[in-house]
Amino acid sequence: MTLANGTWVRARAGDPAHHTRLPRYARGHVGQILHCEGRWPLPDDRARGVVPPRVEAVYAVRFRAFDLWGEGAHTVTLALWESYLEERR
């Protein structure tokens, strides 16, 4: 799966029992794909010693502050591995 630029996505909610690099403040929130940054090993797998780790696309995803915090006019862009995201329905 490759997510096209401009796609609206939701960062996965929930709290995995292992290391992850999906910041808590973005979980469950909707943002928009700016672009794909490349492909890298999934830190969740690397931290658990999964061999080989999954290698996934990483996307720059832009969130509106208002969507994250309920206030604010700025944007916050995070870089997120594909399995952290689901297409917004």
Partner: peptide, 12 residues
Amino acid sequence: TQIAVWDASAES
């Protein structure tokens, strides 16, 4: 002025 914050959460 619009502020764009970049959180270096992955490899960039």
